[in-house]
């Protein structure tokens, strides 16, 4: 087993295990910490595929900024395992069964997929490097890039308006 294959399986197990822990943890703070572990595993997958820019942006934006925002809100609300409401166990079972059925159907649909057996390029190829991505971003994708800045501005204004006290 080569190092790449070993790393792929290791990161996959890490991602799936911590994703399951996100769902089953009773304490919301633990859920956030497991979600950070999932994001680290997914970033590891990106770096394994030599998508270096996406890997680092995933770490900075998701594991850094967004998860800190989640932790901040959870600690602001002073939530812990006791504040979690009790839920009917049949409803939980129904949720898990419907998620599992979707997984089953989509994996079964993969059986006759056109892309089956094609190889993913690991650890080389230069499309994930920041120079090439930046060149494509500022030539072919410059209009969506500018629209994204407007989106950020509107999100910022919206957050301030929603979060304002006294209305």
């Amino acid at each position: 087993m080569s190092a790449t294959v070993f790393l792929f399986y290791f990161l996959s197990v890490l991602a799936l295990g911590s994703a399951i822990m996100v769902v089953v943890s009773r304490n919301p703070v633990h859920s956030v910490l497991w979600l950070i572990a999932t994001f680290f595993a997914i970033s590891g997958h990106y770096i394994l595929m030599n998508a270096q820019f996406i890997g680092i942006v995933n770490l900075i934006v998701y594991a850094g900024a967004i998860m800190v925002l989640f932790l901040f809100v959870i600690m602001l609300m002073n939530m812990n395992a006791d504040s979690e409401p009790k839920k009917n166990k049949w409803l939980k079972l129904a949720g898990v069964v419907s998620g599992g059925c979707l997984l089953l159907v989509m994996v079964a649909a993969l059986k006759s997929a056109e892309v089956k057996g094609q190889l993913v390029q690991m650890k080389d190829g230069d499309i994930g490097l920041i120079a090439n991505l930046g060149k494509a971003l500022f030539t072919d994708f410059v209009v969506p890039f500018e629209i994204a800045s407007v989106l950020f501005l509107s999100a910022m204004v919206g957050t301030v308006v929603i979060g304002k006290k006294g209305d």
Binding site: F8, I20, V23, G95, V96, S98, G99, G100, L110, G117
Partner: peptide, 27 residues
């Protein structure tokens, strides 16, 4: 590495997310 492994991994993560949305009540 074949593409099927990545498809199955992503589908599993996606379905864990769906099961979480359906089973948890904390927003």
């Amino acid at each position: 590495m074949k593409i099927e492994y990545y498809i199955v991994l992503s589908l599993a993560l996606f379905c864990i997310g769906i099961a979480g949305v359906l089973t948890r009540r904390n927003a």
